[in-house]
Amino acid sequence: MLNILLLLAGFAALIFGADKLVDAASALAKKLGVPNIVIGLTIVAFGTSAPELVVNVFAAANDNTDMVMGNVIGSNLFNVLAILGLCATIYPLTVKRNTTWLEIPLSFLAAVVVLILASDLLLDGAATNVITRSEGLVLLLFFAIFLVYNVVIGLGGNADDEETETKDYTYLKSVLFIVLGLAGLVIGGRLIVTGAVNIAAAFGLSERIIGLTIVSIGTSLPELATSIVAVRKRNVDIAIGNVVGSNIFNIFFILGVSTVVAPVPVNPASFTDIYMNIGTSLLLFIFIFTGRGRQLSRGEGIVFLLLYVAYLVLLISQE
């Protein structure tokens, strides 16, 4: 019970910290004259991915490497199957051309890259499968390219389409909230990793399963909240763009940083999750190009939700 309370307290601190950090950093950037579109594409995007990043850095530093991979892949699966599935059942999601032709294929490419980096036994005849620090640096280079692309596209497009609301904080208040937000992230991340590892040990679950389920769902709550609010306001492109962008962030940036902190051995069981991630990314691409033009329908959303439930049942049956 104590570990469950630690986990819940960790999620609360993590989400509070991410929210305050985004608000304060956005307000400070606005006062310093940073364009609104750049704030949305960088600070806000980093903020929604901060929970996964902090948890993974702690997990990598503590040598809980199964949780590192589980959190990244689990978050990506939850983002597409659960969040997009739920959002599409609320209201069909229409996708912009840039998202269709560039970001969704890039998300699929990221999923394939993980498979290639993890397949040392197959490709190199190595003794173990491991994503090394040098491969983590390659992932970060991919991320740098994606970030530059986003900023260039944003500055060259219509900024009104990507309007980002910012708080009107003073400089002092912004700095204080940034410090408070970072403290919330650090404390929350530490509590989550400690609680999750202890729960896994108490219930006889693997760190991989805990990372794929409880931890990944908890750290994806900012994306869930952002997407549902966007769909309810009929800002449907923000909903799908938020999820696809988060998936790219998770692999290129968060997995990249995690493996630079500590090389990540790949559990043979994790290949099921990696293949599932590839299949999910491919299915999203297929759904966008079938039926109505560049749209994720309610029926396709239901299919995503059913697939996620089936995947959870498969995970439980493997334990």
Rank of each mutant, 00 (worst) to 15 (best):
E162W: 08
E163T: 10
E165D: 08
K167M: 12
K167G: 07
D168S: 14
D168M: 05
Y169K: 03
T170K: 08
Y171K: 09
S174E: 04
V175T: 15
I178G: 06
V179H: 09
V179A: 14
G181P: 01
A183F: 12
A183L: 15
A183Q: 02
V186T: 12
I187P: 01
G188W: 02
G188K: 02
G188S: 06
G188D: 01
G189N: 05
R190Y: 14
L191I: 05
L191R: 02
A196Y: 02
A196M: 04
N198P: 02
N198L: 11
A200I: 05
A200P: 00
A201M: 13
A202Y: 11
A202N: 13
F203W: 11
F203N: 08
L205Q: 09
S206L: 10
E207R: 10
E207V: 07
R208Y: 15
I209Q: 01
I210T: 04
G211L: 04
I214D: 01
I214P: 01
V215Q: 03
V215P: 02
S216Y: 06
I217F: 13
G218Q: 02
G218K: 01
T219V: 15
S220I: 08
P222C: 05
E223L: 04
A225G: 10
T226S: 12
S227K: 00
I228W: 00
I228Q: 00
V229T: 10
A230C: 06
A230R: 00
A230Q: 00
R232V: 08
R234E: 12
R234I: 14
V236A: 07
I240D: 01
G241E: 03
N242I: 02
V243F: 03
V243R: 00
S246W: 04
F249C: 08
N250W: 05
N250C: 10
I251H: 03
F252Q: 02
F253H: 07
I254D: 11
I254T: 09
G256C: 09
V257P: 06
V257T: 08
T259N: 10
T259D: 08
V261I: 15
A262C: 11
P263M: 07
V264L: 13
P265S: 05
P265F: 05
V266K: 01
N267H: 13
N267A: 10
S270P: 01
F271K: 04
T272M: 12
T272W: 14
